[in-house]
Design a binder for these strands. Structure first.
Lengths: 153, 153
DNA sequence: TTCAGTGCAAAAACTTTGCAGGAGG
DNA sequence: CCTCCTGCAAAGTTTTTGCACTGAA
């Protein structure tokens, strides 16, 4: 049984439409990427694939993540640590992130008001918005959340 | 005549209070940093100082920028290009950024509503906020803004 | 005098690029 | 058969670290 049928169908359509080739490596990256429940880095994904005896190269992983972002199966996120984080965005609602600067724990939240502000500011300044990034940084009040502390990582 | 007297006073106070030493290198970094009108990167600042025959090392530049951020003379910004941007925050009001993904031009804006959302979400999720990051990405409607296009960069 | 701070260079972390060979269309 | 894609390794970019020396307190 196939693992991520809907996403694969979507990706196939995208590749065809954009005249990119359908290669097994690209779907291998898709599979490993969607196996993450949360955020991951490009290199982290590459390492994980290597450990699972995959033969894909760094170049292919980085290239494919870019394609998956273009067709909106994945989304890029930046949490201020100078690396690109990816997350599945396939069939997911827009959301933003709250990051604990002590334990690194990331909580997702949704607020309708944010897109309104984006539109409002953009109109005011004569700008065509294509996206935004909103992160809140701080500390878990509940010490249980901060148990990730020694988690290695 | 001294160049950034207020900031220097502030920095001196901070260093004393935190039991860090007062060194000429740290004030040299401060001077070069405040000479920027807009955002700059750590390495960029280091290169600029080198070209101006300064003798400071990378380690000192990075270290000092961290200290200047701690005492809020500078602020770190992340615009999604995997490098840390710094800007002067001394005596400046809070603001956020609107980034043209075509020409790279950055426009600042202010909206009181954003902090309210931060507080609202944080309360709701049991989180103590220490800061936030809000960037809008898109395209200058006015083609004149996009003249930065060939600007080198 | 003492040890935090410094310069230097090397390493680290993440990403991009060049090239030769291989496979998708 | 063409050329896009791939693997590999090397290089690029930004940041961090180790070490011996220096200078602020």
């Amino acid at each position: 049984m196939e693992k991520h049928p809907k996403a694969k169908e979507e990706f196939t359509g995208f590749l065809r439409q954009q005249k990119h080739r359908i290669t097994p490596e690209r779907f291998e990256v898709l599979d490993f990427a969607l196996d993450y429940d949360d955020h991951f880095g490009a290199d982290e994904l590459y390492i994980k694939m290597k450990m699972n005896k995959s033969n894909v190269s760094r170049a292919t992983v980085y290239n494919t993540l870019e394609l998956l972002t273009q067709c909106e199966i994945l989304a890029k996120r930046h949490f201020g640590d100078n690396k690109t984080h990816y997350e599945a965005s396939f069939n997911r609602k827009n959301h933003d992130h709250l990051i604990c600067t002590t334990c690194g724990h990331i909580t997702e939240f949704r607020s309708e008001k944010i897109q309104k502000i984006v539109d409002e500011i953009s109109t005011e300044l004569g700008f065509t918005p294509s996206g935004y990034s909103f992160n809140i940084f701080g500390f878990c009040k509940d010490k249980n959340h901060c148990s990730h502390f020694d988690d290695n990582g």
